[in-house]
Every structure is written in C-alpha cells, then in structure tokens.
C-alpha cells in the first residue's frame, strides 16, 4: 500500500474559498434575519439573588455538607449533589482575581471608551476564601485604570460593589454599577 504524504507539496485539499464580495453576489445566496425572542425565567436561586440586589446585599447559598458557599447562588450543591442548606448574605467586599481591558463589544464592534472587566472573589465573614472554587462575581470595574490592569496592580486588590441609588435598582445584576477599589 502506497504511503500518502500529507503536506502542501502532495495534497490539494478540496474546498472553494470565496471573498466577502463574491459571497454576497453569488446567484442563489440567501440572506435571512432570524426573529427569535426569548423569556428566561430566573429560577428559585437567582430570583432571590436579584431581589436581594435591590436591597443592596449579595445573597449566597451555603452547603452545610461540604461548607461551600455559592455566589451566584444555586439550590443544589454541584459537588455533593444535594440541596444547598441555607441563605447567607455577603457585604460584597472581595479580592480581584483577574481583570482585562475590552476595546470591543458583543459583536466585535470597537467601543468608544474601553471597559474594564474582571472577576471578584467574594469575602465570607470578611475573609478571603481559599481553594480552587469560590463564591465570586464577574463584573465591570470603576476607578481602575488601563495601566492598573496591564501592570497587574489591580490583581489581588481589595474591592467593593458600587451600588446604584436604591430607587434606581430594579433587581438586576447591573444594580451593582461596578466594583471599585477600597481606598487605603
């Protein structure tokens, strides 16, 4: 059986590349706009979480079997596969785990002003939890410069949520405007 060498010299791979212009002008090319709207229910754990955001606090669920605290809350422990045990309420202070500067939006459009986004590991009883998994939120940061991200100054920094005014909150993750560094 003949050996078949698979490299550029021996193989011409099938396929017909098109330029973007060619694609739109081909006879038979069809354009279609989907009209798909959805209503998502928030479920037991997240509906309580959103209600508590309105009150200016962060609700988590604790599993008394393994001691894990879940933020965002879940009604079941992923590890014990049992219902979580109780609600606990966090101040929202925490430590920055990672942060980046985004110059683009959801559909890759350039943003006028770059955004700083990151992950906060939330304190339990004013202490930073240890381990591979932890309660945390993914959110925007304020009062953080692009340089703070690039130099790494922001990683490990202590932050707290900046809440919207109570009357402006609507039970949404954006009731927290952003996380900002705690001075001093």
């Amino acid at each position: 059986m003949a050996r078949r060498i698979y490299d550029k010299e021996h193989v011409k791979a099938p396929g017909t590349p098109l330029s973007s212009k060619e694609m739109y002008q081909l006879p038979g090319t069809i354009e279609y706009t989907p009209v798909a709207k959805y209503r998502f229910t928030t479920g037991q754990a997240l509906s309580k979480f959103l209600e508590e955001l309105k009150r200016g606090r962060i609700a988590g669920r604790k599993c008394n079997n393994c001691g894990r605290v879940y933020v965002p809350p879940r009604m079941y422990c992923e590890f014990c596969y049992k219902p979580t045990s109780e609600w606990i309420y966090l101040e929202g202070t925490g430590t920055v785990v990672t942060a980046v500067v985004s110059y683009i939006g959801t559909a890759r459009e350039r943003l006028e002003k770059p955004e700083i986004i990151g992950i906060v590991k939330l304190d339990i009883d004013n202490k930073e939890p240890q381990g591979y998994d932890f309660p945390g939120l993914f959110h925007r940061f304020c009062n953080v410069s692009e340089d703070d991200v690039k130099t790494g100054k922001i990683i490990g920094a202590r932050v707290r949520p900046r809440w919207k005014l109570e009357e402006e909150r609507k039970g949404d993750i954006t009731d927290i405007e952003c996380f900002e560094p705690i001075e001093g």
Binding site: L26, G28, E31, Y32, T33, Y38, R39, T41, T42
Partner: peptide, 30 residues
C-alpha cells in the same frame, strides 16, 4: 417553595445569516 421568578428578556443578536448556495446549488441558480 413558592418563589417569585421574574422573567428575563433576550433576543437573538444575529443581524442576519448569509447562506451560500453550494457547488451544485450555484449551478442550479445560475
């Protein structure tokens, strides 16, 4: 346990899909 479950709206962000006719499809339409 009775619980309020507010609903969250969402919509497909895709502006449109463009489907190529394919090899024989192109012959067909041409």
């Amino acid at each position: 346990k009775k619980c309020t479950t507010p609903e969250y709206p969402g919509k497909m962000e895709t502006e449109k899909y463009v489907y190529t006719p394919g090899l024989h499809g192109l012959e067909f339409f041409k």
